[in-house]
Simulated scan of single mutants.
Amino acid sequence: MKKERPVLDEQEWELIDLALYHSMADHEPVTIKLFDLYKEVLYKGIVMQVDRKLKRIKLRWSDDDWDWIEMSEIIAATY
């Protein structure tokens, strides 16, 4: 079943921002939920960098594996 992208309000964005900040500051894992039309997509890792200009975060899964995640794809984050 196809899902619709949720519309996040200011408070939800603040919670996401806070979780990303704590992950980066404390070097602790954060769980990020990304929007997908058909399934739940969760990633767990440590935020290494937030690029506000390009609106993306660098999420590290392991010592030598990381990826850039587009902020627009994030619909939830828990620290």
Rank of each mutant, 00 (worst) to 15 (best):
M1Y: 14
K2Y: 12
K2R: 15
E4K: 15
E4V: 14
P6K: 07
P6V: 08
V7Q: 14
V7Y: 10
L8M: 06
L8H: 02
E10A: 08
E10M: 04
Q11S: 02
Q11C: 00
E12M: 13
E12D: 04
W13Q: 07
E14C: 06
I16W: 02
I16Y: 01
D17A: 13
A19I: 03
A19G: 02
L20E: 00
L20G: 00
M24P: 00
M24T: 03
D26H: 06
H27A: 09
E28H: 01
P29Y: 01
V30L: 06
V30S: 02
V30T: 09
T31D: 07
T31R: 08
T31K: 08
T31P: 05
I32Q: 05
I32N: 02
K33D: 13
L34I: 10
L34G: 09
F35V: 07
F35W: 11
D36Y: 08
K39Y: 12
Y43R: 09
Y43Q: 11
K44Y: 00
V47M: 05
M48P: 00
M48Y: 01
V50I: 14
D51F: 04
R52K: 10
R52I: 08
K53W: 06
L54P: 00
K55C: 08
R56I: 05
R56N: 01
I57K: 03
I57Y: 01
K58M: 09
K58H: 06
K58E: 10
K58F: 05
L59W: 03
L59S: 06
L59R: 03
R60I: 02
R60Q: 13
R60L: 08
W61T: 13
W61L: 15
W61K: 14
S62H: 09
S62V: 04
D64W: 10
D64F: 11
D64C: 10
D65L: 14
D65F: 08
W66K: 11
D67R: 12
D67I: 15
D67H: 13
I69K: 06
M71N: 06
M71R: 04
I74M: 06
I75T: 03
A76I: 03
A76D: 14
Y79N: 10
Y79H: 11
Y79M: 07
